[in-house]
């Protein structure tokens, strides 16, 4: 099976970014992005689970009967989520504490099920691995941007380090759930504008 890593990377990070373009997994993207640490942690946990579940499902794709595929996917996904949850609790307890309920909730995150159904169950193992990796990184990228915006304006710091001087008052609104929607909208609008521009530039290049 032929695939291009470059195309998968472009798809996952920009052209088909799970958050900006597909608008999937918004629940967790809104809830955990109060600080950059959380955003990065959640993104990487998600990437690890996406890669594992994509590879596992791709390996079993000829073996799983189509009538039982959703059940099989959910079992596989929840296994990896529980493993990541336990590993975080054991080795990164502070991160696990702040991500709280949202790690177990990755089980029902539609990005993972969507990649399993739309990609891993129809493509080879290596292609699925890279698809999971770049979709995960695309999700991470989106979370980093949203959480950076929220942490910077909501509490004046980045990655726990104070950036804005004390004289500039923090807009606590950005830390609230409603502020999360505004932050998501701002970042998505900017990202989409940028992605469109990149696409147009590429199209112009091909023409010349």
């Amino acid at each position: 099976m032929k695939f291009s890593i470059g195309k998968l990377a472009r798809d996952g990070l920009l052209d088909n970014n799970p958050v900006f373009i597909q608008l999937l997994g918004i629940c967790s993207a809104l809830a955990v992005t109060t600080s950059l640490t959380n955003g990065i942690g959640m993104g990487l946990a998600m990437t690890a689970i996406l890669v594992c579940s994509n590879v596992f499902i791709s390996l079993l794709r000829r073996f799983i009967p189509s009538q039982a595929r959703i059940a099989a996917f959910i079992v596989v996904i929840s296994t990896f989520v529980t493993m990541v949850d336990l590993l975080l609790k054991a080795y990164l307890p502070s991160l696990s504490e702040s991500l709280g309920l949202f790690i177990p909730l990755i089980v029902v995150n539609c990005i993972i099920l969507a990649r399993a159904e739309a990609f891993a169950s129809q493509n080879g193992v290596v292609a699925s691995l890279f698809d999971g990796l770049f979709m995960g990184l695309g999700y991470t990228l989106a979370l980093i941007l949203i959480s950076a915006l929220r942490e910077l304006f909501g509490s004046g710091s980045l990655y726990g380090v104070r950036i804005l001087p004390e004289t500039i008052p923090a807009v606590a609104f950005f830390q609230t759930p409603a502020g999360a929607f505004i932050a998501l909208a701002l970042v998505t609008a900017a990202a989409r504008a940028l992605i469109e521009k990149l696409k147009a530039a590429k199209a112009a290049k091909i023409k010349h």
Partner: peptide, 19 residues
């Protein structure tokens, strides 16, 4: 279907137990 799900669950249970 039953055999397939049984096998997948067994593998997953093993992975979970080990973790």
């Amino acid at each position: 279907i039953v055999l397939c799900l049984f096998l997948i669950c067994t593998i997953c249970a093993g992975l979970l137990g080990a973790t």
